[in-house]
């Protein structure tokens, strides 16, 4: 695909997507829209989605595995984006939340395709399982009456659509140009794995130069083993790189290289827990010195 064609395609796709989304969004003043408008909006949005998917590089056809995974990629991408549009445009917040769950599931599928199985499962559990349920819970709690004016009215839909689709168009244009312009070091996965992401690991031996005892050395070897690579050390006879077992590798990376990060994240969760309990406490705050 030439650059001009890409440019035209991106512009057209984004434009029709923008028109479709605008039509699908609630009316600015909360008026009811005609059904034809919705249909037209759905058509335009589908057209935009199609154009957008055409922007993506198609998978190779020869090994069946790649073809299948490429097809699944299209399915999941289309699902994620379609559900995303519906999330944004649904008038009922309950539907929004449910569509968002769909987005999350589709994204989890994309994670799977990117060899991040643990994350896929985690996303589904945390987002679709926990967060969406929390949202739904709050919606039920807050909107027991059901209909609300503000759900049926969008705020400045035209300007919002213009803004976000201008952003999307710019991003897409950059990214489509990316594949031709940038190549990482051609040495393959080994060099990629040796990315100098962990200078701290290389500093270790300098600090422990004086460590002479055999026990210390064993401990150091265990502790300072490279964990950052996605790929297994022992590649066997296969030509292609073999990935490490996902959960084991991720766990090793998390708890060897990013231990502090994990601890920090845990502390953050704990703090958020306390904050949520404190903020949402319905009892009136007692002033100091006031008796119960």
């Amino acid at each position: 695909m030439t650059d001009d064609a890409t440019f035209t395609l991106a512009t057209l796709g984004v434009l029709s997507g923008a028109i479709g989304t605008y039509l699908l969004l609630p009316h600015r003043r909360g008026r009811a829209k005609a059904r034809t408008l919705y249909v037209a909006g759905g058509l335009f949005a589908a057209l935009g989605l199609l154009g957008f998917l055409l922007l993506l590089t198609p998978p190779a056809l020869s090994p069946l595995g790649e073809l299948v995974s490429g097809a699944f990629f299209y399915v999941f991408a289309a699902g994620a984006l379609g559900c995303g549009v519906m999330t944004v445009t649904s008038r009922n917040p309950v539907y929004s939340a449910l569509w968002f769950a769909g987005t999350v599931i589709a994204t989890a599928g994309l994670f799977l395709l990117a060899d991040a199985q643990f994350l896929a499962a985690g996303t589904v559990i945390v987002y679709a399982g926990a967060i969406v349920v929390t949202f739904l819970f709050v919606i039920m709690l807050a909107q027991m009456e059901g209909k609300a004016v503000y759900d049926r009215a969008a705020r400045t839909p035209g300007r919002a659509v213009f803004t976000s689709f201008l952003l999307l168009w710019s991003l897409a244009y950059c990214l489509v140009g990316l594949s031709g312009s940038y190549r990482p070091d051609a040495a393959g996965p080994e060099a990629a794995a040796e990315d100098r992401l962990h200078p701290g690991r290389e500093l270790g031996p300098h600090f422990f130069q004086e460590a002479t005892g055999a026990g210390v050395r064993v401990v150091l070897d265990k502790a300072l083993r490279p964990t950052s690579s996605l790929f297994a050390e022992d590649r066997g006879d296969s030509d292609a790189a073999i990935l490490k077992p996902n959960v084991a590798g991720l766990g090793e990376a998390l708890y060897a290289d990013h231990l502090v990060t994990v601890e920090l994240a845990g502390s953050l969760l704990f703090a958020a827990l306390i904050a949520a309990v404190l903020i949402a406490d319905p009892r009136p705050t007692r002033k100091r010195g006031e008796t119960a």
């Binding site: 803004t163 201008l166 952003l167 710019s170 244009y173 950059c174």
Partner: peptide, 19 residues
């Protein structure tokens, strides 16, 4: 929302200018 929109628009325009 206005603030968010303003910053998003600024980012988009900036990106566009860079391109």
């Amino acid at each position: 929302q206005f603030y968010a929109a303003a910053s998003a628009l600024s980012v988009a325009v900036l990106l566009w200018l860079l391109l």
